[in-house]
Design a protein around this nucleic acid. Structure first.
Length: 189
DNA sequence: TGTGCGATTACG
DNA sequence: GTAATCGCACAC
């Protein structure tokens, strides 16, 4: 019932792709979460890692669409993005929060500091910890590969979507490139 | 080679 | 409000 999104889904403007990822499922090795919050990043965007061009760190972000860009930050956290647009564009969607759907027991084990279910995946570094995503998944093919994937379970798009400024950045704070499902308790903050 | 800071989280 | 913790990007 759940099918992977085709490469063509990702090979579009990131500002279109990002809100459409809401409601889709991110899965990895038995853990499943519904995407409830995302942000878009582009090459012509001061807040984006890709703003300075291709580096060792951003190589995957400039690669073909439909792959996973995972980065390490604050000396301890991993965050996961779906690469969008075309090769060389440097665009990606940051997955900021999930509603846990499956593999909750494993998530609780990997997130011992979580006290309530809504603490498990309500942040970009929380969800990578809960699912076990890290450097080993850098560059993973979300469309064809065996690892992490984003699937459509046929539940349709959310009945409403909210948007506003992105979180945790100091540049380009005026861009309303964050989207989330209103009232969903698993959204960050 | 040195340094400031980050697409965060958790705790006081 | 702020410590934790270290790799990256850029200055020197």
């Amino acid at each position: 019932m759940a099918r992977r999104l085709p490469r063509s889904f990702y090979a579009r403007p990131v500002l279109e792709v990002a809100p459409e990822l809401l409601g889709k499922l991110l899965t990895f090795e038995g853990c499943v979460g519904r995407i409830v919050e995302v942000e878009a990043y582009r090459q012509d965007d001061e807040a984006s890692h890709s703003f300075r061009g291709v580096t060792e760190r951003t190589r995957v972000m400039f690669g073909p669409p439909g792959h996973l860009y995972v980065y390490f930050t604050y000396g301890m956290h991993w965050c996961a993005n779906a690469v969008c647009e075309g090769e060389g564009q440097g665009a990606a969607v940051l997955i900021r929060a999930l509603e846990p759907i499956g593999g909750l027991e494993e998530m609780w084990t990997r997130r011992p500091k979580a006290r309530r279910e809504r603490d498990l995946c309500s942040g970009p570094a929380k969800l990578t910890a809960a699912l076990g995503l890290g450097v080993d998944q850098l560059g993973a093919d979300l469309v064809r590969g065996p690892g992490p994937r984003i699937v459509d379970d046929g539940s349709g798009s959310p009945s409403s979507i909210a948007s506003g400024p992105r979180i945790g950045i100091s540049k380009a704070i005026e861009k309303p490139w964050r989207w989330w499902i209103p009232e969903n308790p698993h959204v960050s903050r």
